[in-house]
Design a protein around this nucleic acid. Structure first.
Lengths: 157, 157
DNA sequence: TATTTAAATGCAACTCTGTTGCATTTGTAA
DNA sequence: TTACAAATGCAACAGAGTTGCATTTAAATA
């Protein structure tokens, strides 16, 4: 499963710099933080590196376990929020109720990309296909973004 | 927004009776419980009635607040699990991290129905259109069920 | 109708996710 | 080197959801 293509574009008021387009999958971690106007701390560099190497979406618990830096819970959560706002990562919600994150920003209109959730090992993978609405919305409902969750059995199970 | 059409079919080992097909939207609450082999307690009857009247998906907190019966947390959660296993309701996970439930069972193959999540009021609505995969799965991945989450602004916001 | 029993409920204690306020530390620009 | 905003750590917290166990209740049986 290939990872999604990402384009910048958060929606908060952190910095104007965040609008700058980056190539999340090719730029260096240093560059990404710089372009987004975020300070290059040890944790953040390690976090981005980890996301780049991750084969599937990461929950807080996965990150806490994988990171060398002994980071505080609040700091890690805060960085996940910031990274998401800034478009470096995107969150995915499966049936387990815990949010998992993967590299790349969420596309923001019409169609979105899909995630595969393994029913067996609960791993979440990003798919590189996109999905589009195949039916009409009821009156008054304005869709902005479509996310598809495919449940099934993954290649490792 | 119309509610989804439901067909029975849980996947646990609670009772063989659960395989019996019911018409969730027309059968009486009494009948539904009976056909599923569940005892007709005051709480369950009220719960089903509430789901029938609900205009959108219900989280634990919504139910706790809406129900006349002063039910314990564990009892309510246990009933939600049972109802879901038995195919009376299905859970939906949006970005808020709390599971919301709506009447009807989740379809179990190929395509699934869609949910609309309002970015403003966080209400979840069931849509009656279905979605299908528009791309090929990577080798080794076996899809069983597709759920679509549409984020946007609802008719009330 | 009274008896019996498995299913359902209530209670208490707990785990885990995620958040917030505030003091301290650190990256970076001047 | 200094200074300041940003980032971190700490502590305390709220809420979702779970589990074991004692008690109660629905409903089948006598």
């Amino acid at each position: 499963m290939l990872l999604p293509f990402g384009t910048g574009g958060g929606n908060s008021a952190i910095k104007m710099l965040e609008k700058i387009t980056v190539d999340i999958f090719n730029d260096s971690s240093q560059n990404l933080l710089e372009k987004k106007g975020l300070k290059k701390t040890k944790l953040r560099l390690e976090l981005i590196q980890h996301f780049k190497e991750a084969k599937h979406a990461q929950a807080y618990s996965d990150l806490k376990q994988a990171l060398v830096s002994d980071v505080d819970k609040s700091t890690l959560y805060r960085n996940l929020s910031i990274f998401e706002e800034v478009g470096l990562i995107h969150g995915i919600n499966d049936h387990t109720g815990v949010t998992k994150y993967a590299l790349g920003s969420e596309p923001s209109s019409g169609h979105g990309h899909a995630h595969f959730v393994c029913e067996c090992c609960e791993t979440v993978y990003c798919m590189n296909g996109t999905t589009e609405l195949q039916f009409e919305m009821p009156h008054g409902f304005k869709p902005k973004n479509v996310q598809t969750i495919i449940k099934g059995i993954c290649a490792n199970c």
